[in-house]
């Protein structure tokens, strides 16, 4: 959960958003989740998927920091051989998002009301049937909670949330791979321009 203040997302008190870059190997998810279980660290959400680098996955873990000092969480994660890098994004300005699909009961009479609500939340309708509708919404947890609350009176048949993914704002990254500067430079040269941040041609 978080609150957006001037566009900057902050963690809810005591919560931390930890990004772990891990080797894409069998069993790595179990190693991480088993570590949290054994050490008594509470997970609010855990999301995992491919990262920009081949062979590395990115896990976004929202930890209840009241269950453990966050530096212990980081250090214990680092002890896993398959964990390459750990960053506590709570120290940074970050963008955090979650996606949810909500299947809501509806009929000809109240469908329009629901569509109006969806509009306010900028949710998409991804499926529609005679007596139900699937809304897809992207946002921070508060926004999704808000939409869920608005849908509740109609009857939520099914709710699926991805859990949070997050990134630091600006040029800073939490990645570990080599960005292959030569390849990037060649690409930009082939387009007749310099890599972002370098001097323009005119100054050569």
């Amino acid at each position: 959960m978080n609150t957006a203040v001037n566009g900057v997302v902050k963690d809810r008190a005591g919560h931390h958003t930890v990004v772990a870059i891990v080797e894409d190997k069998p069993g790595v998810l179990m190693r991480v989740s088993s570590l949290f279980r054994r050490r008594g660290f509470n997970i609010e959400s855990l999301t995992v998927g491919h990262s920009e680098a081949e062979g590395l996955s990115r896990m976004t873990i929202v930890v209840d920091g009241t269950s453990a000092p966050i530096d212990q969480v980081e250090k214990q994660l680092y002890k896993l051989i398959d964990v390459v890098k750990v960053t506590d994004l709570s120290q940074e300005d970050m963008v955090a998002r979650e996606l949810a699909m909500i299947k809501v009961r509806c009929n000809n009479v109240n469908r329009h009301e629901l569509l109006d609500i969806a509009n306010v939340f900028r949710a998409d309708v991804v499926d529609i049937a005679t007596n139900s509708i699937i809304l897809q919404v992207v946002g921070d947890e508060d926004k999704i909670d808000g939409l869920v609350k608005m849908c509740e009176p109609y009857g939520i048949r099914e709710l699926s949330r991805t859990g949070r993914i997050a990134m630091v704002r600006g040029t800073k990254t939490t990645t570990v791979h080599d960005p292959e500067p030569e390849r990037i430079r060649q690409f930009h040269a082939s387009q007749g321009r310099r890599v972002e941040g370098e001097l323009p041609f005119s100054s050569d």
Binding site: P26, G27, M30, R31, S34, L35, R38, L80, I81, D82
Partner: peptide
């Protein structure tokens, strides 16, 4: 056995 020993080895391999 790799599952069983996850939490009592520094690392394990199958």
């Amino acid at each position: 056995i790799t599952g069983i020993t996850h939490s009592i080895t520094k690392h394990n391999y199958l």
